[in-house]
Amino acid sequence: MPVTRHLIKRGDGAAVELFQARATDTAPTGAILFVHGNQGGLLLGAKELVDNGALLRFSSRLNITTAAVSQPGFGGSDGPADFCGPKTQQSIIAAIRFLREQPSVDPDRIVLYGNSRGAVAAAMVAAQVRDLRAIILSSGVYDLKEVFETSPRGIRQAIEHEAGLSTEAFRARSALHHAHDIRSEILLLHGRYDDRAPVAQAEAFSAALSDAGVSVDIRVFECGHRIPREESQSALRPFLQKVLVSGITRH
């Protein structure tokens, strides 16, 4: 089950890097699209999911297609970075479109999985692509302005440099204000002691989604920003089994 690298095009012609591992089944299967986090300045992009084995691990265990997309300015994707903003969101949407065109993928069973910075952007995409099978958001911020002042200095500088500090810039990166546009089932994963993305962010977003009639499940773990894999798996396994393997229809 080899991993292949693709350079696809965003609507404005910018290159978007994507890595893909295909299922062994000949019939179309579900798919997961991963969106990486900040990566501590390494700028590996989607290759991080290849290097750490996540792409092949999820693909082989669930016998599905998996893919990972590099945000603008990361990996082989054209920049500049815009801190989870419209260009990042458009890159993710381009990756979803690419997956839907693959013969190995059932277009009605695509799950979007964003982590940290990737969760900020993936949550915003959920408000625009309303027919995804499900969304998984791990350690995300859903009201960026609310946490800006208490964020670490490096994150504040990145937000100011990449996005600016206007009301419009914050709103374009804050899915809490767009919960009423989301229709896909959502699983929220968060650490109780997260010092970058306070757990109150996930709790408030969960409440807003529930009020909007969205099927949402929130799982809070006794950890910080990085959720240990062995802990997150306890929530991921049954959720992915339900939405990708069992054939349960969309809510």
Score class of each variant (00 low, 15 high):
121 A>I: 06
115 N>K: 11
132 L>H: 11
62 L>D: 01
201 Q>Y: 06
125 V>Q: 02
59 S>F: 03
91 S>T: 04
11 G>L: 10
38 N>G: 15
105 V>D: 09
92 I>G: 03
216 V>F: 03
238 P>A: 03
35 V>Y: 10
4 T>D: 12
71 Q>S: 11
161 H>S: 13
241 Q>H: 12
182 I>Y: 06
48 E>R: 14
151 S>A: 15
188 L>Q: 02
122 A>S: 15
222 E>Q: 12
121 A>S: 10
200 A>D: 13
202 A>V: 00
16 V>F: 01
123 A>W: 05
243 V>L: 03
105 V>R: 13
80 P>K: 12
71 Q>N: 04
166 S>W: 03
162 E>Y: 02
21 A>T: 11
81 A>Q: 07
113 Y>T: 05
164 G>V: 05
7 L>A: 09
208 A>L: 03
69 V>G: 12
54 A>R: 14
100 R>P: 12
34 F>M: 11
38 N>Y: 14
158 A>G: 12
67 A>L: 08
213 G>D: 06
161 H>P: 08
228 P>A: 06
96 I>N: 09
240 L>Q: 06
100 R>M: 11
105 V>F: 07
119 A>K: 00
109 R>V: 07
195 D>T: 15
207 A>T: 10
149 E>G: 09
61 R>W: 13
106 D>H: 14
52 N>Q: 01
212 A>C: 01
11 G>C: 06
23 A>F: 04
143 D>V: 02
75 G>I: 05
29 T>Q: 15
248 I>Q: 14
75 G>W: 02
244 L>E: 09
230 E>P: 10
22 R>E: 12
106 D>S: 09
215 S>D: 12
55 L>V: 10
20 Q>W: 13
47 K>E: 15
138 S>Q: 14
57 R>N: 14
131 D>N: 13
81 A>H: 14
32 I>E: 11
151 S>N: 13
113 Y>P: 07
216 V>I: 02
54 A>F: 09
124 M>K: 11
185 E>Q: 11
144 L>C: 02
199 V>C: 11
207 A>C: 01
111 V>N: 07
251 H>M: 13
156 R>H: 03
53 G>S: 05
131 D>H: 11
170 F>W: 06
243 V>E: 00
179 A>T: 02
13 G>L: 01
225 H>L: 05
212 A>K: 04
213 G>M: 11
142 Y>N: 00
24 T>N: 12
154 G>W: 15
102 Q>H: 11
132 L>E: 03
7 L>T: 08
